[in-house]
Computed example of a mutant assay.
Amino acid sequence: MTIFASSTVGTVTFANDASEQIDQSIKNSFNDIQSAVFSDPYDALPKYKVTKKLFGKSGDHPDNHVLRAARRSMTSTADLFDFPLGQKVFQPNGICFAGHWLIESDSEYTGLFEEGTRVPVIARASVALGGTLQKHKRAFGMAVKLFPHPNPDLPVKTANLFVMNSLGGVKTQHVLDLSMDNAPALGALPPMNKWGTMLRLQRDFAKADRELSGDDSEIAYRPVDALANINSRNGNALETVYSPTWVRLSIDKHIPKMDQDDFRNELRVNQYPEEKLVWHIDVAAGEISNKKQARWQRIGRLELTSSITSKTCDQRLHFQHPLGQ
């Protein structure tokens, strides 16, 4: 059983492993979360490693740390969480951003996909396991936390988007060459010495997903219905919801490529023109198994205008994973 309590430091509410209840009413403002994420930058980039020593016991043992983390990631709405292991279990090395989610084209989709939407975001780009360098097979992805109200000082319940390029990772000189979506392909297999680690992670995350989503859920697919169900002007739930099946992010072709060995250095926004990174937002609908036949529609941009590598980014920032379908 995953256990949480909520507490408050200043005006920021976060969770910890101290109570038997999960507070589903946790709200924070964009400005407060941005302040926390940018408050404790590293002096040098850390090299967090994912090893089986972190995982604890296997199966249904109460000290199965991976299974507890998987359950928490799908149930806790906290934006900040003090991770009990001192790092994320699956994607510990990341870089965080602040910016905006902008929808500029009309479509049939509702909520945060509706034309005219402009809301602030906190995003975290990361790679699975510990390989951060160009020589590694990097399973690159991004979590985007959207604050569904134009007022950055207003506490709101956030919505979270998860996209990856591939589950197993690929070798590439620039991670900006990689498009990401919410139904990533398998990609390359991890290095031989990481197979046991990856299989354990996949097994426990799949178990948690089946417990909460049902036996037939697609483990690799993360639905985006929650984004379509929120009024971007007041944060309220909508009565009528039309959601795309897939969301894809791809970098704008005018963004130059920076030859940095570690992806975190590659993505520092202050080295780019106008100190900005821009990903296009494409959406499509269809049967989950037919992504290859998707008819993509470009509806907007994700603009990230500041970046940080920090302890809070890696050790406290929490994104609720949507349940599978």
Results as ranks from 00 to 15, higher is better:
residue 145 K to Y: 00
residue 196 G to R: 06
residue 216 D to M: 08
residue 208 A to D: 07
residue 224 V to Y: 08
residue 178 L to R: 15
residue 143 A to V: 08
residue 140 F to V: 12
residue 225 D to I: 15
residue 166 S to V: 10
residue 175 V to Y: 06
residue 180 M to V: 04
residue 228 A to E: 01
residue 241 V to Q: 14
residue 215 D to I: 13
residue 204 D to C: 01
residue 219 I to D: 13
residue 234 N to T: 10
residue 234 N to Q: 04
residue 217 S to Q: 15
residue 240 T to V: 15
residue 149 H to M: 01
residue 236 N to R: 12
residue 227 L to G: 01
residue 191 P to E: 07
residue 233 R to M: 09
residue 189 L to P: 00
residue 191 P to W: 00
residue 170 V to T: 09
residue 176 L to N: 09
residue 143 A to W: 00
residue 235 G to K: 07
residue 205 F to V: 08
residue 238 L to M: 11
residue 201 L to Q: 00
residue 159 A to G: 14
residue 179 S to M: 14
residue 214 G to S: 12
residue 221 Y to R: 10
residue 231 N to I: 02
residue 184 P to Q: 01
residue 215 D to N: 10
residue 197 T to V: 07
residue 193 N to I: 09
residue 163 V to C: 13
residue 205 F to R: 15
residue 192 M to W: 03
residue 230 I to E: 02
residue 197 T to Y: 05
residue 195 W to I: 12
residue 215 D to R: 13
residue 217 S to M: 12
residue 198 M to H: 04
residue 190 P to M: 01
residue 244 P to V: 10
residue 212 L to Q: 15
residue 222 R to N: 10
residue 219 I to T: 10
residue 165 N to L: 09
residue 227 L to Y: 00
residue 233 R to E: 06
residue 228 A to W: 08
residue 142 M to K: 07
residue 223 P to G: 02
residue 158 T to N: 04
residue 137 K to Y: 14
residue 211 E to N: 00
residue 139 A to G: 03
residue 195 W to N: 05
residue 188 A to D: 09
residue 193 N to Q: 13
residue 143 A to G: 02
residue 236 N to D: 13
residue 160 N to G: 13
residue 170 V to D: 08
residue 229 N to Y: 01
residue 233 R to V: 05
residue 195 W to F: 11
residue 244 P to H: 07
residue 228 A to C: 07
residue 142 M to C: 07
residue 241 V to M: 13
residue 236 N to M: 14
residue 160 N to P: 12
residue 168 G to C: 05
residue 209 D to F: 10
residue 207 K to C: 09
residue 233 R to H: 07
residue 197 T to P: 15
residue 145 K to R: 05
residue 165 N to E: 11
residue 158 T to R: 04
residue 185 A to W: 04
residue 169 G to E: 02
residue 234 N to M: 09
residue 140 F to N: 05
residue 198 M to E: 05
residue 201 L to G: 01
residue 149 H to F: 00
residue 172 T to R: 09
residue 186 L to P: 07
residue 190 P to F: 01
residue 199 L to Q: 10
residue 229 N to Q: 02
residue 228 A to I: 07
residue 204 D to M: 00
residue 139 A to H: 05
residue 230 I to P: 02
residue 161 L to T: 15
residue 193 N to L: 11
residue 166 S to D: 02
residue 232 S to Y: 11
residue 236 N to Y: 14
residue 166 S to A: 06
residue 232 S to M: 06
residue 179 S to W: 14
residue 208 A to E: 03
residue 204 D to T: 08
residue 239 E to P: 08
residue 147 F to A: 02
residue 171 K to M: 09
residue 206 A to P: 09
residue 190 P to A: 04
residue 158 T to K: 03
residue 229 N to S: 06
residue 192 M to K: 08
residue 239 E to V: 10
residue 159 A to L: 11
residue 177 D to G: 02
residue 236 N to A: 14
residue 226 A to V: 10
residue 189 L to S: 08
residue 227 L to W: 00
residue 186 L to G: 08
residue 232 S to Q: 03
residue 191 P to Y: 04
residue 203 R to H: 10
residue 161 L to E: 14
residue 224 V to W: 06
residue 167 L to M: 13
